[in-house]
């Protein structure tokens, strides 16, 4: 029961409290880039979640069973980024070959994820936080869902911005960032909620 509770805490806190985009600033580029339309935001969010889970499932064993065993812990960054980049490419090829329908929906987002700092960030953070394999997977799922949530919410805000009359210097990215700031402010309200829920 305790183990389940700790997993739930990890999940909820990475979705709401420590939302990667809005409070840790990882993955800002796709957040700003692909959040203009709801369907694209959703597609990107799902693709990122899938890649995060996959990347963690691969990088966690690599760190503990390969790098740590042979004393190459410092190679973490290089190995992880290479593994993630090739994984994404591989996933794209496989989807294209075997599930063309899904590739059509999500495939276009995959190449953009290769250099997404949230994916590398979650892989490294899981190791730094000392999570076991299950906790790492749950944390990746939470981060991915948090990303999806932020993308979907923000795409709603974006469509309002498009219609409004904004002073010239703020048009484009300026207003977008300020809107993101308000969304982030709303998410600050979640601080402490998870600990209180399960205290």
């Amino acid at each position: 029961m305790d183990a389940f509770k700790s997993l739930l805490v990890i999940l909820l806190s990475s979705v709401l409290v420590n939302n990667y985009v809005l409070s840790r600033f990882l993955g800002i580029c796709p957040f700003l880039g692909v959040s203009k339309k709801l369907d694209q935001a959703t597609g990107m969010g799902i693709a990122v979640t899938a890649v995060m889970l996959l990347a963690t499932a691969v990088t966690w064993p690599i760190q503990y069973f390969l790098l740590d065993k042979v004393g190459l812990g410092y190679m973490q960054t290089i190995v992880f980024i290479l593994v993630i980049a090739s994984l994404v490419q591989l996933l794209e090829l496989l989807l294209k070959r075997f599930i063309p329908a899904l590739h059509k929906g999500l495939g276009v987002y995959l190449p953009l994820i290769t250099t997404n700092c949230a994916v590398l960030g979650v892989a490294i953070n899981n190791i730094n936080d000392g999570y076991n394999f299950l906790q790492s997977m749950v944390s990746s799922l939470g981060v991915g869902l948090g990303f999806l949530l932020a993308m979907v919410l923000f795409s709603g805000l974006r469509s309002r911005i498009e219609e409004s009359n904004i002073p010239k210097p703020f048009r484009g990215l300026g207003a977008t960032l300020i809107a993101a700031s308000f969304l982030s402010l709303a998410f600050m309200g979640f601080a402490g909620i998870v600990e209180k829920l399960f205290a």
């Binding site: 409070s23 990215l173 300026g174 977008t176 960032l177 300020i178 993101a180 700031s181 402010l185 600050m188």
Partner: peptide, 25 residues
């Protein structure tokens, strides 16, 4: 204190982008 927290960063960044746009336009 809001400024050193996450939302403050986004707010300051947005304003600075607008400022640089004005300077270099």
């Amino acid at each position: 204190e809001f400024l050193v927290k996450a939302p403050g960063g986004l707010l300051v960044y947005g304003c600075l982008i607008a400022l640089v746009y004005v300077i270099t336009r």
